[in-house]
């Protein structure tokens, strides 16, 4: 279970928060003109990386404020938490623990099937 450092309330148990999925998703401009496919991508498709992931959380059972978070989905390590109006941290400022797209990190995964 995660300990999440709410930028307004400080570190709290994950059960106080709700996950809001991928952060920085932009609604496409000119929605009247774009095709079904592009619109469908905006509605249904979200990033799902094994590794560095930008996501949103809301402190539902606390201050009820939204904020952004960078988490490594291969280890669940929270790398950075920033307010909703702050700039998105650059991807290359984080270390990627996964060498191949579906590879396992050295530490932090419950999957022992491919560990040497």
């Amino acid at each position: 279970m995660l300990i999440i450092d709410c930028p307004y309330c400080g570190p709290r148990d994950q059960s106080e928060f709700s996950n809001g999925g991928e952060a920085h998703v932009k609604r496409p401009d000119g929605s009247a003109e774009i095709g079904d496919r592009e619109w469908g991508e905006y509605v249904f498709i979200r990033a799902n990386p094994k590794g560095i992931f930008y996501e949103r959380w809301v402190h539902s059972h606390g201050c009820r404020k939204w904020f952004n978070c960078v988490r490594d989905t291969s280890t669940d390590e929270i790398l950075k938490i920033y307010k909703i109006d702050e700039e998105r941290p650059k991807l290359d400022s984080f270390k990627n623990n996964v060498k191949t797209p579906s590879g396992e990190p050295n530490l932090g995964s419950g999957n022992f099937t491919v560990k040497k």
Binding site: T73, D76, G108, G110, N111
Partner: peptide, 13 residues
């Protein structure tokens, strides 16, 4: 779990 993860573990809650 409510969040995306590949850790094959999951939260205790």
């Amino acid at each position: 779990d409510s969040y995306n993860s590949f850790t094959q573990r999951g939260g205790f809650n």
